[in-house]
C-alpha cells in the first residue's frame, strides 16, 4: 500500500494517470482548467496537459455533455464535470436521449466512451438546488452505467474503470467524502464496474450501502457489533448495472436485508433491490426487506430539517434493531 491520500486526490490521480496513458482522454467543464475545479479536484491537470486537454467552458451543461457525446462518438474519451448533481437536470437530454441510446439506436456503429462526474452535497445546508441525490433516475437508463465510489481506494479504481469503459458512465462523488483519507494500492489498478464489495462479513443481516452511506453503515455496524449483532455489510459501488448475485448470496446467509441510500426512498435503488430480492429469494427471507433513505419531500437548507431528511448511522441502527426484533 502507498501513503494515505484524500478521496479528491484519488480522483485527480486516476484522471491524470489515464490522461498520461491515453492521449484521447481530456477533461471539460466549468472551472476545471485554470481554477483546478470548483472544489480543487482537477488541480494541476491543466499545468501538465495544457488547456487543449483541460477545457474551461461557459456555463452550458447541455452543450458540455452534448460535446462529450459527439466527441466520444468521434473517438475521444471525455471526462466532464457537472459540479453539483442538481445541475445535471440541464443535460438529462444529452445523457438520456443521446448518450444512453446512441450505440443501440445506430445499430452498434458507434461507441460512446465518456465519464460524467457529478457531486452530491447533502449535509452542507446547500439547499434545494444543490443537495439532491438523483442517481436513481440514471439507474433506470439502459446504455448508461452509474458508479458511486465510497472510499479513496475505489474512487481511484472506479474512475480508471469508467475512463476505460466503452460506454457512458455517470460517476457520483460525494462532497462530504472529498477529505476522507486512506492508503491506496500503488501502481495501476481498477475497481470493476458492476461488482459490489463485501466490506464486513456477518451472519445476522445484510446491509447494502450506497455511495457515501458506507461511512454511516460502518458506524452503525460498529454499534451493532457491540450489541452482539453481526451484520454483513455490502458496498454497492455500481448502481447500474446492479450486482444482484452478490446480494442474493449474502441474503442466503443472513436471511435479512436492509438498504441504506441518501436519495429518496420512493422509486430509489433500494426499491429495485428489494423487489428483485423478494422475486428471487422469497423463501430465504425471515423478514420484509427494509430501506433507510430520504423521505418523500424536498431537502431543506435548514440544518435541523436537513438532518431529519438525510439517512444516517442512528437511523440505520434503529432499523436493524427493529428488524431483528
Amino acid at each position: 500500500m502507498g501513503k494515505p491520500i484524500m478521496f479528491q486526490w484519488a480522483i485527480n490521480h486516476a484522471i491524470a494517470e489515464e490522461m498520461r496513458r491515453d492521449p484521447t482522454v481530456f477533461i471539460i467543464g466549468e472551472d476545471v482548467g485554470k481554477p483546478g475545479g470548483p472544489f480543487g479536484v482537477t488541480r494541476g491537470i491543466i499545468d501538465e496537459f495544457g488547456p487543449e486537454r483541460a477545457v474551461d467552458t461557459p456555463i452550458s451543461e447541455g452543450a458540455i455533455i452534448g460535446l462529450c457525446v459527439g466527441a466520444a462518438a468521434a473517438g475521444l474519451r471525455p471526462v466532464a464535470e457537472i459540479m453539483f448533481m442538481n445541475f445535471i437536470t440541464l443535460c438529462v437530454e444529452e445523457l438520456y436521449n443521446q448518450a444512453s441510446k446512441m450505440r443501440w439506436m445506430f445499430g452498434a456503429q458507434v461507441k460512446v466512451p465518456m465519464v460524467v462526474r457529478a457531486m452530491t452535497a447533502g449535509g452542507y445546508g446547500a439547499g434545494p438546488h444543490h443537495s439532491s441525490s438523483l442517481e436513481s433516475w440514471f439507474a433506470s437508463m439502459p446504455g448508461l452505467k452509474v458508479v458511486m465510489p465510497s472510499t479513496p481506494v475505489n474512487a481511484k479504481g472506479l474512475m480508471k474503470a469508467a475512463i476505460r469503459d466503452d460506454n457512458p458512465v455517470l460517476y457520483v462523488e460525494p462532497l462530504s467524502s472529498y477529505r476522507i483519507k486512506a492508503e491506496i494500492p500503488e501502481g495501476d489498478y481498477i475497481t470493476p464496474i458492476g461488482k459490489c464489495e463485501i466490506v464486513r462479513e456477518g451472519t445476522d443481516i445484510t446491509i447494502v450501502s450506497v455511495g457515501r452511506m458506507l461511512q454511516e453503515a460502518l458506524k452503525a455496524v460498529d454499534v451493532l457489533e457491540k450489541d452482539g449483532i453481526k451484520p454483513e455489510l455490502i458496498d454497492l459501488l455500481t448502481i447500474n448495472p446492479l450486482d444482484m448475485e452478490t446480494i442474493y448470496a449474502s441474503v442466503k446467509k443472513t436471511n435479512r436485508l436492509v438498504i441504506i441510500h441518501e436519495a429518496k426512498q420512493t422509486m430509489g435503488i433500494g426499491a429495485e433491490i428489494a423487489a428483485s430480492v423478494q422475486e428471487k429469494m422469497f423463501d430465504w427471507l425471515d423478514a420484509p426487506v427494509e430501506r433507510v433513505a430520504a423521505p418523500f419531500t424536498h431537502i431543506a437548507f435548514q440544518p435541523k430539517l436537513e438532518q431529519h431528511y438525510l439517512p444516517d448511522a442512528t437511523k440505520l441502527v434503529a432499523k436493524v434493531k427493529q428488524m431483528l426484533g
Partner: peptide, 30 residues
C-alpha cells in the same frame, strides 16, 4: 433558517423569494 423567514426557513440565501413585493425568486441554478 427560522420559521419567520420569507420562505419559512426552507430556502436560505440562494433560493429567497418574497412574492408580495414582486421578488419572484432567487435561483440556485444559473
Amino acid at each position: 433558517g427560522r420559521i419567520d423567514g420569507c420562505c419559512k426557513g426552507r430556502a436560505g440565501s440562494m433560493h429567497f423569494a418574497d412574492v408580495k413585493t414582486g421578488c419572484m425568486g432567487s435561483n440556485g441554478i444559473v
